[in-house]
Design a protein around this nucleic acid. Sequence first.
DNA 1: AATAATTTAGAACAAATGTACTAAAATAAA
DNA 2: TTTATTTTAGTACATTTGTTCTAAATTATT
Lengths: 208, 208
Amino acid sequence: MSTKERILETSLLLFNEFGTESVTVRHIAERMHISHGNLCYHYPNKEALIIALYEQLVNQLNQKVTHYIGKEISIIDMQASLIFVISLFYKYKFLMQNFTNIMRIIPYIREHYIQICIQRKKEFQMIHNQLIHNNILIPEPYKGAYDALYIRVHMMGDFWIPFADIHLQGSDNEKIQQFVNQIFELYFPYFTNDTKLLFHNLNSNNSI
Amino acid sequence: MSTKERILETSLLLFNEFGTESVTVRHIAERMHISHGNLCYHYPNKEALIIALYEQLVNQLNQKVTHYIGKEISIIDMQASLIFVISLFYKYKFLMQNFTNIMRIIPYIREHYIQICIQRKKEFQMIHNQLIHNNILIPEPYKGAYDALYIRVHMMGDFWIPFADIHLQGSDNEKIQQFVNQIFELYFPYFTNDTKLLFHNLNSNNSI
DNA sequence: AATAATTTAGAACAAATGTACTAAAATAAA
DNA sequence: TTTATTTTAGTACATTTGTTCTAAATTATT
């Protein structure tokens, strides 16, 4: 593995453990047993490291999204996709923990993230429409209901990790499972009766 | 107003505008046209300022909570109380924006906040029980349903401000209104039919 | 093998920041 | 009015951090 790759790897490790504020380029270099001059040769500063890690995450997310495009989506798919996304978020935990700060400090990430969100919202609208069409979700009970639902889902996605870190116990995997359950609880009132039944059977199998 | 009070006031202003990381004791002193030596005479460092402001917020919250203790709570009360709390959170916006960081950096706040949350959870459980008893909420549909609901409400409360800041437009007041709506949407599936009707009438009056 | 390019270590410097200290000024108490 | 206390301004110092630079070492190329 190249020095450049090792730098990112070590940065991710330290950022996740101690947060971006406490960790400096010198700490990272020290941990790797290289000089910080060397580190700055590859990445001029901490900001560059954060951006590089952010781009890693975004790339991995995009691969998954394009994978789903145009396909029919079931409840099982949704569940798998939720687990994939939240697991990835856990891998880049520090980004989620410091999200608002990073957004404020690094304009590139702020603008890029806002762009991504616009796109993500459209994708969700498409998925919702498809699920309504396939009788998995009920038609919109009032205008804007699914937009409001999406806000809740979106919030849960972005802030679950810092919340769980503070308030919940157990392993990361248990927290991921709880996250998936919570998202489904958000969707539950919008499930058709058939879906509710299906979902109920699914859950009673899983829980034992 | 004493210097000590003016310091807190100015700190709050600058923290809210630029975030706790960017603002230093020197900036605050400069803005107030006093020496930073003077500022450090009253509050030795930035951490002390953050703690003092945190305590201001907690005190104001506690006053409201004790106000409600032992009383019967209606939907209207809930709405009023939600608006009060979220408005207070908006006043101390910087605390909510940097929450996870502040929790990590300042042990006093971390431990104190965790204590508060235990208490807050119990209060909510009592309120839920009362609302079930008064036929406003349905009985728990499955074991842990209201605990899970409370997690969603809690998350929404703690992270609405950073979320709205990034993704929503409009004035703070509009965002506060949206917050209240979102919380009620979380509760809606647990309303009794009577409450749903009442809630519906309430909303159709408000919206015009 | 000789040369060029890349990578690395380490030093050096500037700026920012927290903290402590001193002496003057203002205020309160006697 | 005198004395004590509190408040204020300003300075000074250590530490941290980002950033740049140089020269040595390593690797790749010819």
